[in-house]
């Protein structure tokens, strides 16, 4: 399954719910305001750092760029993808679960 999270962890509990209710081995893609969770050195960073033990985690590059967030500041182990990469993830990981 491919989970997408589109909310900042500073604003909503969406990422927490996704992490609590996603099966081990499933993929998580951070999109829209969700990309904020992928940044190093914030008080929220530990969530994604911890998630990497059980999940492959991705972040949508165009949404980082739009918000002035540098790829260099993305948490180690989180892979940056573009929209084509988003499509590939959907193909590879099965059903889509958008945490809204």
């Amino acid at each position: 399954m491919l989970h997408t999270v589109n909310k900042s962890p500073f604003e909503r509990n969406t990422l927490d719910s996704c992490l609590r209710l996603s099966a081990k081995g499933s993929a998580i893609l951070l999109i829209e305001d969700g990309v904020i969770a992928a940044m190093k050195g914030t008080v929220q960073s530990a969530k994604i750092e911890g998630a990497l033990a059980d999940h492959s985690v991705f972040v949508l590059g165009p949404d980082l760029k739009a918000r002035g967030l540098a790829e260099d500041n993305v948490i180690d182990g989180v892979k940056v993808v573009d929209y084509a990469g988003f499509v590939d993830l959907a193909v590879e990981h099965g059903a889509h679960n958008a945490w809204l």
Partner: peptide, 17 residues
Amino acid sequence: SAAELAELIDSSDCVIS
């Protein structure tokens, strides 16, 4: 439980929120 529910969600074909 959350763990049981995670497995159930994972096994579904379509998720609509």
